[in-house]
Each structure stands twice: as structure tokens, then as C-alpha cells.
Simulated scan of single mutants.
Amino acid sequence: MSLPSELAGTPVAEHAAPRGIQVYRNLHLWLATGLAITLVGFAPTYFLNLRDATWFQHLHGLSATLWMGLLVVQPWLATRGRLKRHRSFGIVALVLAGMVVASGLAVLPFNIENAIEATSSPFAPATFLYGVTFVDLLTILGFLVAVLMATLSIRSLDDHVLWMASTLFWVLMPALARLLTFGLLVTVGPGDWTLVDTVFWTAFPILGLLVYLMVRIRRAHPALVLAAVGNLGALFVEPIGNSESWRALCNAVFL
């Protein structure tokens, strides 16, 4: 995805395709990869176990999956000249974003309940559940900021696209970590590792991809920088999860 310098700040006309939009003609294919990772990564724990999920988990799973699907559809519509449909779906996207944020906050208490009751699997110890709650809060906040900035920059093509596309990097970590976990279970089998380890190592390919994109477009765009900072949180799941102060705060807020 390369952005010519002359496109920076290109104004988006209200009823016409913005100049230079065809530079994003293949963006939907990149975003479709993120959707595929989400579907495969969450298949064993959610899509193939729908009966075990709570109502809030269903709402979060449905809204997040639809969001990822919309990320694929929107650039395809815009680069094929279907701007009226693109703008209509933009309204739907705002509703979906609200559902993703609200349902994401609603499922956080389950992390703390599982940590205290020790009802989770051996791969998700209390350290992970408390630590990943911090990462989840960071992810929800970053996702919300990215959506708001994409909405506010709707008249600047490059900014609008990059802020919206960056939401992928706020929701990719959970799916990719699960995919890595099941890959390890199949190839290596159970061992001394837990989800603390897989989340830690999952951060590196995501950070690497963000750095690659910044080099490719020759610009450290705020959307990509913010996503990189947010994904750095995955490297600190263990110390945060072991923090007594953080555990006490989570217990007070979520229980």
C-alpha cells in the first residue's frame, strides 16, 4: 500500500470519487487476511462452541466479526465507484463500532471472575487473565480513538483510510494469539508455556507489520504509531498481571 506524496490531504468531494482513490484498490485483500485470521483463530473457542458463550460474548463476537467484514467491503465499494453504498455502510459502521466497544467492556468482568474462581484452562492462569484485561482496555480505547479519528478525517482521503484500516491492528491480537496457541498445541503439544507466552510473541509480527507499513508509505502516520504503541502492551501482560495493585483495582471495578 503505497501513498504518493501528492495525495496527502486530498479533499474528499461529497458526491464524487476522491482523486487518487485507486491507490487503495487492493486494500480489501489485505484486510480480508485479517478477517480470515479472526475466523480461524476464534473458531475453536467461539464459533464451534456457540452454546457455551454468554449473551455478551455473542454480541461481542458478532459485532467484531461484522466490523472486520465491513473493513473488507468498504474499500472495495469505494474503489469500484459505489460511493453511495459506501457512505450508507459508513453509518452502519458507527453503530457496529459502538457495539464492539460496549460489548468489549461488558465481557471484561468474565476475565476477573475466571481468575478468582480458577475456572479457566491451565493455558490461561490468573496472571494472564488480569494482565490481558489491561491489554483489552487499551485495545478498546485505541479502537475507539481510531474510529473517531477516521470519522473526523472523512474529508482527507489518506487520513480517513489509514485511521479506519488501523482498527484492524486493535482487534487482530486476540485472534492471532489464539491461532498461534492452537498451532502450538497441534505441533508441539502442551508444555510449560501459557497464553502469557503466546500473547507476548504475537506482538512481534503485528509490530513488524506496522513498522513495514510506515516504511512503505514513508510516513509514521499517527494511526500506525498509535496502533504500535497499543500493541506494545502485550509485552507487559505478565508484570501487569502479577501486580497486586492492578489486581485490587480490577477486583474493585469488575466484581
Rank of each mutant, 00 (worst) to 15 (best):
E113I: 13
A115L: 05
N49Y: 07
W76G: 01
N111E: 11
L59N: 05
Q74P: 00
L129T: 06
T127F: 03
L108N: 00
S121Q: 14
L62G: 07
S63N: 05
S63G: 07
R51N: 14
N114Q: 15
V132D: 06
H86D: 01
A93K: 03
L96K: 04
G69R: 05
S121D: 12
G61L: 13
L83K: 10
L96C: 10
T79L: 05
P122Q: 12
F110I: 11
H58M: 06
A106W: 04
G61V: 12
A102M: 12
L105R: 05
A97R: 10
S63Y: 05
P75V: 02
P109K: 07
A102Y: 00
V73Y: 02
A93N: 13
Q57H: 14
F110G: 04
L66Y: 03
G61A: 13
A97D: 03
Q57L: 12
L96M: 10
V92G: 01
W55Y: 12
F56L: 11
V100E: 00
H86F: 08
Q57M: 13
A126P: 05
L66W: 06
L83F: 10
G98W: 14
A78G: 09
S121Y: 14
K84W: 00
N111D: 15
S63C: 04
W55L: 11
A115D: 02
A102N: 01
V100I: 14
H86A: 06
N49D: 11
L94F: 08
L105Y: 15
S103M: 05
V132M: 10
V107E: 03
A115W: 03
L94C: 09
R82C: 00
L129Y: 07
G104Y: 08
T79D: 09
L77A: 04
L70V: 08
A124T: 15
V92P: 01
A126G: 09
L77N: 04
P122I: 14
I116M: 13
N114Y: 13
A124Y: 15
R51H: 14
L108G: 03
S120G: 14
G90M: 11
V132T: 12
W76S: 02
A126R: 02
V72R: 02
G69A: 01
V72A: 01
R51C: 06
L66V: 10
I91Y: 15
T79M: 10
G104F: 09
G61W: 13
P122R: 15
Q74T: 04
A78F: 09
W76I: 03
I91C: 05
V101L: 13
T127G: 07
V101F: 13
L71Y: 04
A78V: 09
G81P: 00
A115N: 04
S88H: 12
A115Y: 03
H58F: 07
H60I: 05
A78L: 10
M68I: 01
H86N: 08
L77D: 02
R82D: 08
N111Q: 15
F56E: 13
R87Y: 09
A106Y: 06
A102H: 07
E117M: 12
L129Q: 12
P122T: 15
R80A: 10
H60P: 02
F110C: 07
L66R: 02
W55D: 11
Y130D: 02
A124D: 14
S63Q: 09
W67N: 06
V73D: 00
